[in-house]
Write a protein that binds this DNA or RNA. Structure first.
Length: 429
RNA sequence: GAGACCGUGGUGUAAUAGUAGCACAAAGACCUGUGGAGUCUUUAGUACGGAUGCAAGUUCCGUCGGCCUCCCCA
């Protein structure tokens, strides 16, 4: 082979068969649990009108401002590779008049998303997300149910020590007031903030809250908190969400500094992290999942005034966490039966037999192109099958077949037409 | 967008500036009647471009990638 000329674009990756096992495991888990809780699958295009995102996510957010892949089509449309999943689904909800369907309406999705960022641990330019969205219901039970479904999924994927961080960031009634309060507080302590945060005071004071700079944290720790300034509606809503979470015994932690980077959120916001009770290797906590309520989004995108709530989980991050935790490497389930053949008549009969196995829904492997029995047994051994069927010239002529137990090396000769029922029985043991 | 470190066959690793080697993996043969082993053979590499120098995997510069941090987020 000569020099490799092409390689995957920066920050993107091929999902090779060995990696695919992890995706499949996660997919199966999210699919069955989502379905159980009444979510329906939805897929939207990989690209959308760029304005869908600039309007929904916010024109001044990093995601839209710096990280979106935008291009112009031949027809002149300005499209963007989707950087997140909520806005497109809201668009679809509006476009198809789904507010005329019985509400609430619940969706789940699983697919690739794109952000032009500098890649690093658990962060890619093409990454996969699983997400849930609920439209048309403002009851706090929805917020709690959503958190519970995500929690159940992560539990199903064997996550332990999960902590849900929650906060309420208010709505259009109370947030503007709080923003003013916060920025005037911050302004009086401007000199003790990091330079970046000093700039944020004016247009996005909320972001100062989750700055990691020690100076800012100090100032923030004495700052007024949103939860103390919620309007009555938001306050009640949040209180009920917490009550429901208590009811289902989900471990949560109030984090008054939790704000999200997307503009469309209102009221409840949440993030899931895995609590690494400070092991010797002080791993940074990685956000596995994030979401919240976005009651104003549908209207903002031109629909009716429909409340909604949702969240999304980063598949690659889940996989990293699983790999950190489990030594054993996941692999796709391999067949437990191998068919070895010898001679041209046996080859022909093998083709027929394989088809019978397929119809009987039994996974069977083979290597028809190999002639040496030794080679075939070696291959079957490497695959780790339980039984190898040997169809040689003698057997092919007399209508028999050998079943070899690979563990005990014992073998028996049976009638060819009986082999499937016999194998079925054996596999059940 | 800023910064740190790194880049040798498919993988893992060697090579004071002086013959790019080893192991594993893979393919084939022994082997068309019985696997886990063996023997033999084969495949395959200094990311790319430039500079210095008799000589560069090794030094220098640039590019491209990887990885990690900041930022932000899933």
């Amino acid at each position: 082979m000569k020099k490799v000329k092409f390689q995957v674009p920066t920050g993107m990756h091929d999902i090779l068969p060995s990696e695919e096992a992890y995706f499949q495991k996660i997919y199966k888990s999210v699919e069955s649990i989502s379905k159980f809780y009444g979510f329906q699958k939805i897929d939207t295009p990989i690209v959308e009108d760029a304005e869908v995102f600039s309007k929904a996510v916010g024109i001044s957010t990093d995601i839209v401002e710096k990280e979106m892949y935008v291009f112009k089509t031949k027809g002149g449309d300005v499209l963007a590779l989707r950087p997140e999943g909520t806005a497109p689904i809201a668009r679809s909800y509006i476009e198809h008049g789904m507010f005329n369907l019985p509400q609430p309406i619940k969706f789940w999705y699983f697919g690739p998303f794109f952000r032009h960022e500098r890649p690093q641990a658990g962060r890619f330019r093409q990454f996969w997300q699983f997400g849930l969205e609920v439209f048309g219901e403002d009851s706090p039970i929805i917020d709690a149910e959503l958190i519970q479904v995500f929690y159940t999924i992560l539990k199903d994927l064997k996550f332990k020590n999960l902590i849900v961080e929650v906060n309420s960031i208010g709505d259009s009634q109370c947030r503007p007031y709080y923003k003013k309060l916060l920025s005037s507080y911050l302004r009086t302590h401007q000199h003790s903030l990091c330079p970046k945060c000093q700039k944020k005071i004016k247009d996005n004071p909320l972001r100062v809250l989750d700055c990691k700079d020690d100076r800012c944290r100090d100032v923030v720790s004495r700052a007024p908190q949103m939860i103390d300034h919620l309007c009555e509606g938001c306050h009640n809503h949040f209180r009920q969400v917490l009550e429901f979470l208590d009811g289902v015994e989900i471990p949560y932690r109030l984090n008054p500094y939790l704000v999200r980077g997307l503009d469309y959120y209102t009221r409840t916001v949440f993030e899931f992290i895995e609590d690494k009770h400070s092991d010797e290797n002080n791993e940074r906590k990685m956000e596995l999942l994030g979401g919240g309520r976005y009651d104003a989004l549908v209207k903002l995108l031109g629909g009716k005034d429909v409340p909604a709530c949702g969240g999304a989980m980063g598949i690659e991050r889940i996989i990293i966490a699983i790999k950190n935790r489990e030594k054993e490497v996941l692999s796709e389930t391999s067949p437990r039966i191998f068919l070895a053949q010898l001679g041209s008549l046996a080859k022909i009969k093998s083709l027929k037999l394989l088809e019978e196995f397929r119809k009987a829904n039994i996974n069977i492997s083979q290597s028809l192109s190999k002639n040496s029995l030794k080679t075939q047994l070696r291959i079957s051994d490497k695959m780790g099958v339980d039984y190898t069927l040997i169809l040689g010239q003698k057997e092919a002529i007399s209508g028999m077949i050998i079943i070899r137990n690979m563990k005990t090396s014992k073998q028996e000769t049976v009638l060819l037409e009986n082999v499937i029922p016999i194998i079925k029985k054996r596999l059940k043991k």
